[in-house]
């Protein structure tokens, strides 16, 4: 009973984390599902978003402006990956890894801007007491408008609405066609290189925005905050798909499924932490969860599908 109570007590935190990472998961969905590219830039661009946001807020800049700048910084990171991939012809995965690696150095520099004592810094703290933060985990249990869940939920809805509109436009359709069938897209006059760059830009913009939210939520940006982010994002996307693809067919709902996936992911994480695992064990756990959820649909198709072909074969041997 105590256990259950303490688990329920931790649920608001899981929801807050889940909503923040949900924005990131939507970014991953755009590359992984729509563009059909596994983009590893996100491990770097999440921290870039966090670093830019923390820096600007600590300098006294309006937090909305700080988040917008973080978004633009992430888009720039995605643009770099896009150029590596399309102009330089480097495979998508490697392009992402290159940008991610480069961003590590850049993020260390960003966090030290304006500091005379250090040239690089691996973390930058912002406090809800001293700075004007939009969301903070400190308020997660308050029943006031300051509760971060409220603003995060509104932001998630806005992000989904904007993406729903964008992917319905001519450019958005071109991007979807590029991911679905590059040959077809080119035959219809779509510049597939341009589409890929655009998808990476949009995706990493969202990931950096999530980084900016996360920084405010947890009160600091660290250079390592994005480590393994791609796997968490994938976990959210896949959990959402496996559990909700039967009910959610509309595009906006599919994006929402990513967010719900992220919330479920953090609920499960909270549960296992209560069961006695260390936070350092989480990466192992996340990897296993993603592996499991990727295996299920594959095995379902391979071992549990209706045996259509064998039946036909039997008929023909009898005949």
């Amino acid at each position: 009973m105590d256990f259950l109570l303490s688990f329920l007590n931790a649920m608001p935190g899981a929801v807050g984390q889940g909503l923040t990472w949900g924005v990131m998961a939507i970014g991953v969905y755009i590359t992984y599902r729509i563009l059909d590219v596994a983009d590893l830039t996100v491990d770097g661009s999440l921290a870039t978003g966090g670093a830019v946001c923390a820096l600007l807020i600590s300098m006294g800049v309006n937090p909305w402006l700080a988040m917008l700048t973080a978004l633009l910084a992430g888009m720039l990171a995605g643009f770099a990956t896009g150029l590596f991939h399309t102009v330089c012809g480097i495979p998508a995965i490697l392009s992402g890894i290159l940008t991610q690696l480069a961003l590590y150095s850049i993020n260390l520099r960003i966090m030290a801007i304006g500091d005379d004592a250090a040239k690089t810094k691996n973390s930058l703290a912002v406090s809800v007491d001293r700075h004007n933060l939009l969301v903070s985990s400190r308020n997660i249990r308050k029943l006031t408008l300051e509760n971060p869940i409220l603003l995060l939920a509104v932001l998630v809805v806005v992000v989904i609405a904007v993406l729903y509109w964008f992917f319905g436009t001519e450019q958005g359709c071109a991007l979807r066609a590029t991911g679905s069938n590059g040959n077809m897209a080119r035959a219809q006059g779509i510049n597939t290189d341009r589409s890929k760059v655009m998808g990476l830009v949009v995706s990493n913009g969202l990931v950096a925005l999530a980084g900016a939210l996360l920084t405010q939520y947890q009160g600091s940006a660290t250079v390592d905050m994005g480590r393994g982010a791609i796997v968490i994002g994938l976990a959210a996307v896949i959990i959402g798909e496996v559990l909700l693809s039967g009910v959610f067919h509309n595009f906006a709902l599919k994006l929402l499924a990513c967010v719900i996936g992220a919330i479920i992911y953090y609920a499960v994480i909270t549960l296992v932490l209560r069961l006695g695992l260390e936070t350092t064990d989480l990466k192992l756990l996340t990897a296993l969860v993603v592996a499991l959820f990727l295996t299920v649909p594959y095995w379902k198709g391979k071992y549990f599908s209706k045996p259509v072909k064998p039946v036909k074969k039997e008929e023909s041997t009898h005949a």
Binding site: F166, G172, M184
Partner: peptide
């Protein structure tokens, strides 16, 4: 959607509805 993509072959793709 496929047909709409083909109907815009050779045209500039904008932010108007697809």
């Amino acid at each position: 959607e496929n047909m709409a993509l083909a109907a815009r072959r050779g045209q500039k793709r904008t932010l108007r509805p697809g």
